[in-house]
Design a binder for these strands. Structure first.
Lengths: 219, 219
DNA sequence: AAGAAAGCTGAAGATTTGCTGAAAATTTAG
DNA sequence: CTAAATTTTCAGCAAATCTTCAGCTTTCTT
């Protein structure tokens, strides 16, 4: 599922966007200020972030900069001002796109899809395929016999190929935000996943020491 | 050199853009109708194409579609109309961005740069590139095998090229403000970084005695 | 030219990280 | 309610990484 992070201090907007985007089958997470927005981003690793510029505390430019720097997701800035100089400032702050409020939801959708095209170029022939309906993941066409947790974990990796995911992010995504246990449980499950994938050399599920794990699907 | 293809039937515009973009060190090719534009694209394989929508013969949407499908370059559409529906139509025709005439040259520049960031053209140009997603830094395209601290250190330098960074500043940025140890640890890590970069002559990571270190990336 | 300061270096020791097998706890199924 | 399956915890290990330190070289000052 494609993840979208919305950061705006106006709740009317975040609610509106959450509803609208969820109706479009996106996985939406909302934050009402910059700081928690960046925090959320670290946890969920979104594909696209929609960030309002004018916010109390950390402003949109700064949030954008942090997101591009640490997460590397696509960023669309939102602004009440439509001045040319603001647009330039936004784009130079590493944003990938810039929209002026009020905007049409349709246009936002179109821009999100334009962004996603840039991210998901490599999705040609997948070695690992997810069958949501049957809650199955197939490897080279063969269904893997996974437990519920194993499924969710591998699912998360497949959603973020070629991306280093921290154990904390994994814990949040798979075990939930309110999980108490230690990250060791992730390590244990990585072992079983690698076993079931026959990945004894750790080539598919790579350990990136100090950062986390990465799914590296060979083409 | 980064290649930009401009397709517009109004010669006043193509000339204006050609001059302006060449002044910005881009390699600019111009076409005055869609058909020859696509032909040119096949020849030069541009990084970014700027395409006017309203043109006699093949219109901008169609050109855009062909470019995305066959060339895969980034496309910025230009239009006299600023209607929301037109913008959506443009973005859904696989365009990566959409601008309304009349536009400021500055904004176009900013948008071009935003596009280029996605294509990783910079990576071919830049000696050192950061891949946030994969927590990798590449030197001449080759990934460096860095530990977490080495990565953070080099990351810090790349973000501040041509800038002398004091050991104290480095310690703060990489090790955190609450770090107890001495600055010698920076010196030790500079050594390993220089080793991994093959920088035996200390030309990339220069010592500025009494002040700190400077990343000097030769273009 | 000598001394002082700043920076470099190799190696040792300390710490952290990730992996693992197995046991304990929990959930699920029969 | 039991047995099986699954999930979680734990402790030990090895390897990678980080830190420290003492001696060394280079540069600057007088």
């Amino acid at each position: 599922m494609i993840k979208i992070l919305v950061i705006d201090d106006e709740e009317s907007i975040t609610q509106f966007l959450q509803m609208g985007l969820e109706a479009e089958q996106f996985d939406v997470v909302v934050a009402n200020d910059g700081m928690t927005g960046v925090q959320q981003a670290k946890n969920i690793v979104p594909d696209v972030a929609i960030v309002d510029i004018m916010m109390p505390g950390m402003d949109g430019y700064e949030v954008c900069h942090l997101l591009k720097k640490h997460i590397g997701c696509q960023v669309i800035l939102l602004s009440a001002k439509g001045e040319v100089e603001d647009r330039i400032k936004g784009l130079n702050a590493l944003a990938d796109d810039y929209m002026t409020k009020p905007f049409s939801f349709e246009e936002l959708l179109a821009r999100i899809h334009a962004r996603l095209r840039n991210v998901r170029v490599q999705q040609e022939e997948a070695l690992l395929t997810i069958d949501e309906k049957q809650k199955q993941i197939r490897y080279r066409g063969e269904p893997l016999l996974l437990t519920r947790t194993e499924y969710k974990l591998l699912h998360y990796f497949i959603e973020h190929p070629q991306t280093v995911l921290s154990k904390e992010a994994i814990l949040n995504a798979v075990w939930g935000y309110d999980y108490f246990g230690s990250v060791n449980v992730v390590e244990v499950y990585m072992k079983t996943l690698r076993q079931k994938l026959g990945d004894t050399e750790h080539t598919m599920l790579q350990t990136v020491r100090g950062f986390g794990y990465k799914l590296d699907v060979p083409v």
